[in-house]
Design a protein around this nucleic acid. Sequence first.
DNA 1: CCCTGATTCGC
DNA 2: GCGAATCAGG
Length: 197
Amino acid sequence: MSWTDERVETLKRMWAEGQSASAIAKELGGVTRNAVIGKVHRLGLSNRNDEAEAAPAPAPAAEKKAGKKPPKPAASPAPEPAAAKPAPAPAQETAAQPSFVPVPRRPIVPAGQPLPPQPSANEISPEALATVREIEKKARKLSLMELTERTCKWPIGDPATDKFWFCGLPSQPGKPYCEAHVGVAFQPMSSRRDRRR
DNA sequence: CCCTGATTCGC
DNA sequence: GCGAATCAGG
């Protein structure tokens, strides 16, 4: 495989979205995550630290060749966005679309940008709630960083407290949740009682 | 052990 | 330019 314009475009897009290198590689196919990372660097979009030379002359860097592999002083502040639903009311199929909230920014609302994930009015049936409670007992209680593509990302507890973790059980292939949580997450609309009003 | 990105360097 | 091997770390 080669880096065609189209593939590069996909790479850029996904990287900008905060996708992991492995996820991008998987999407593109025919390349490894190393290839993706390598390309990312060559494209110069590894880190978006566009420092305008505020403090030049950091280190002349002289070392170059070496018989084998000299340790490398890699300083890499790589904040990693992650997908996380604060409230136990996830319902949309968003296995790979981290809506990151890295820094408390000003509520600058540019112009209808990425603000789709908003299930808000989502009512869970009492039965489902009971089921969830049961499942939660089996949760592995993984932290954010312990989550992978194959661990259930069902949030449990209050994000504002220490009592917060993720289910973490083996997730269904291609799904963000374990079998049990997929069951309660993807409920057919019809299962919802017709709220009398 | 799973994963992440960063870097090096032979090709 | 490419990316496997490797490193460093959560």
